[in-house]
Write a protein that binds this DNA or RNA. Structure first.
Lengths: 230, 230
DNA sequence: GCTTTATCGTACCGATTGGTTCGATTATGA
DNA sequence: TCATAATCGAACCAATCGGTACGATAAAGC
């Protein structure tokens, strides 16, 4: 709901307009650079203090933007927050589909996938995002649900697709593909992600630790689902 | 820090006291029933709205206690919150050690353990607690860390102990016990817990679904780690 | 140059916050 | 019955909140 004011004035008349003086300047609240600047500052604040404990004044200061301008770009604190979550959610697993499109044996694909998964999911940035979102799920359920849906389930879908192909080719024997995809995703993060989320670990896992976990997970996964001779 | 005022007056003199008039009435802020009443009301509020969005006035109303009294029992909003988290964390997995002490084959112990794990971790109450705690980790890191440490790691320890015994008995071959314990814990919740945390699922899993997940997890786990003939 | 206008900066608004104070009330125990 | 004191309840406080209003500023296009 609540469309942007539409701003039919200038700058948009590509199709019809062109009648009078056309300014190439950005309409109020439509400069993408400024918008990004605001989002960046807001991200910084929200990540440090969460939703409620972040004041809009702090955001202004962090973003280097006046309060008036801020409220031209975003109607609400909630509006700003949702835009932020949306951006973060979309950026999270950008490269993952491409990764699985490569022509590699299953085992190596799983290793690549697992590595990226742990790295992303346990990174400082993503962990902080997840904390904030988890914290407001109760009051803004759709925000949380969409966050999970787009980010987590997208991965599962990619992985499920891969497993589907392997299953059709007769190389693996998987009764429930979606379950298997979930299992793999959880396995690679076992013992790390939760500890990160709750702040028991203050730093992301080292590459060595990631490797250990991924190798163990892949081995476990394949031993469970690889088709057996006899 | 910040010990309770100690309240050396009455009611405590079991060992030394008994000198003068002893009131059996509770000293101010020391009636455990009232304390529990406050915690219960507070729990209700915090679970609905999180830490910041819960006002102390709401807590008073929900607990049926005057504000003055509330501040006699707890010095702070943070103090109240920490007490709440502590209680919740300790209650969370109460029966789990006992469960593993039974004399049963490994497979069945794992099934029992897994079931309880999913049920508890994905229950409404625990999910809500986890959301709140995750949400304030950034600002109160020790609270989050302790929450994780006591609850999650306690389980892992129980399970690890069991696996250790089985390993010593030569029935399983597990290179990294702690990792294996983590893996099992994550496996049983695969695809459910995260969705619950982020509000993608509004209800706990059915017993049927739990059963499916646990069975799959146990099978996978044992196939990976059971000692093979040859 | 002049005009236009997006942005700035600050003051301001009412509402709410966490926390305190204090006299009235009520239950206890002697 | 009477004194004690834990609890109540409501007023109160300063601070902060999200959000608005508006004149000053500065950069862009003619």
């Amino acid at each position: 709901m609540a469309e942007k004011p539409a701003n039919t004035s200038r700058c948009e008349g590509d199709a019809a307009g062109k009648v009078k003086t056309r300014y190439r300047r950005h309409a109020a609240g439509e400069d993408p650079a400024k918008r990004g600047q605001i989002l960046k500052g807001a991200m910084q604040c929200f990540m440090e203090n969460g939703f409620d404990a972040t004041s809009m004044n702090e955001v202004c200061r962090a973003a280097g933007v006046s309060k008036g301008t801020l409220y031209v770009y975003f109607t609400d604190k909630v509006d700003l927050f949702e835009a932020l979550v949306a951006e973060e959610r979309d950026r999270m697993f950008e490269g993952i589909e491409a990764l699985l499109k490569q022509d590699l044996p299953l085992r190596e694909k799983l290793v690549l996938f697992g590595r990226l998964m742990v790295e992303v999911l346990c990174s400082d940035r993503v962990i902080r995002s997840q904390r904030i979102v988890a914290g407001i799920v109760e009051r803004m359920p759709e925000v949380g649900a969409r966050f999970y849906d787009v980010a987590a389930r997208r991965n599962n879908a990619s992985l499920a697709e891969l497993l589907e192909r392997e299953s059709a080719a007769g190389r693996v024997d998987i009764p429930d593909i979606d379950l298997a995809a979930s299992q793999f995703s959880e396995l690679v993060c076992a013992g790390i992600w939760r500890a990160r989320l709750f702040g028991k670990r203050e730093t992301p896992p080292s590459t060595a630790e990631i490797e250990t976990h991924v190798q163990s997970a892949v081995a476990m996964f394949l031993r469970a689902y690889e088709k057996r001779a006899g």
